[in-house]
Amino acid sequence: MLSSKELMHLEDFLGMEQNCAKTMSYFASNVQDAQAKQLFQQLGQKSQQHVQTMSKHLNAGQNLQ
């Protein structure tokens, strides 16, 4: 079981990861170079996957409490 401090840190990490996904999406939509666009899209997708995974685990942990 997670302590409230650990949960707070994970929620902070989740917020940072969501911000990263949004930033990468913004860069991908505003860059002209095709390789850079692809890289930003891939990084944004990976960040979004992290958000989904973390959310799933946080929700599962809260259901156990």
Rank of each mutant, 00 (worst) to 15 (best):
K56P: 02
S3P: 02
Q48E: 13
N63M: 09
G61A: 14
H57K: 11
K37I: 05
A60Q: 13
F40N: 06
M24C: 08
Q62W: 04
H57Y: 15
S25D: 03
K22F: 09
E6P: 00
Q42R: 12
N59L: 14
H57F: 11
K56N: 15
H9P: 06
T23W: 05
N30Y: 07
S4Y: 15
L58V: 05
Y26Q: 10
A36K: 12
D12Q: 06
M1D: 14
A34W: 09
N19F: 03
Q65P: 01
E6D: 10
L58R: 00
L58S: 05
Y26I: 07
K46L: 11
L7V: 06
F13Y: 08
V51K: 09
M54E: 00
Q48D: 05
Q42H: 09
Q48K: 13
Q49P: 03
E11R: 08
A21L: 10
S3E: 05
Q32F: 06
L2H: 10
Q35L: 14
L43R: 03
S25F: 05
M16G: 15
S29V: 09
S25C: 06
Q45D: 15
F13K: 12
N59M: 13
L14F: 04
L43I: 08
Y26M: 12
L10H: 03
M8Q: 13
F27N: 00
L7E: 03
S29I: 00
T53E: 09
N30P: 05
L7H: 04
Q42E: 15
F27T: 01
V51Q: 05
F40C: 11
K5Q: 09
L14N: 02
S4N: 14
C20T: 06
Q65L: 09
L14C: 00
F40S: 05
K46R: 11
T23Y: 04
M8A: 14
L2N: 07
Q49I: 01
N30G: 03
M24R: 01
L39G: 04
Q65M: 11
N59P: 05
M54R: 02
D12R: 04
D12S: 04
L43E: 07
M16V: 06
L2K: 10
A28L: 07
M24N: 08
S4G: 08
L10T: 00
Q42A: 14
F40G: 02
L43A: 14
H50V: 04
Q48L: 08
F13N: 09
L43W: 07
K37L: 07
C20D: 02
Q32N: 14
H57R: 10
K22M: 13
L14E: 04
A36Y: 14
G15D: 00
Q48Y: 10
K46D: 15
V51M: 02
S3Q: 04
F13M: 13
A28R: 04
Q38D: 12
Q42F: 08
L7N: 07
C20Q: 10
D12P: 00
G44T: 02
M8I: 12
Q41W: 03
A34M: 09
D33E: 06
H57P: 05
L2V: 11
L58M: 02
A36D: 08
Q48R: 13
Q52W: 03
Q32V: 10
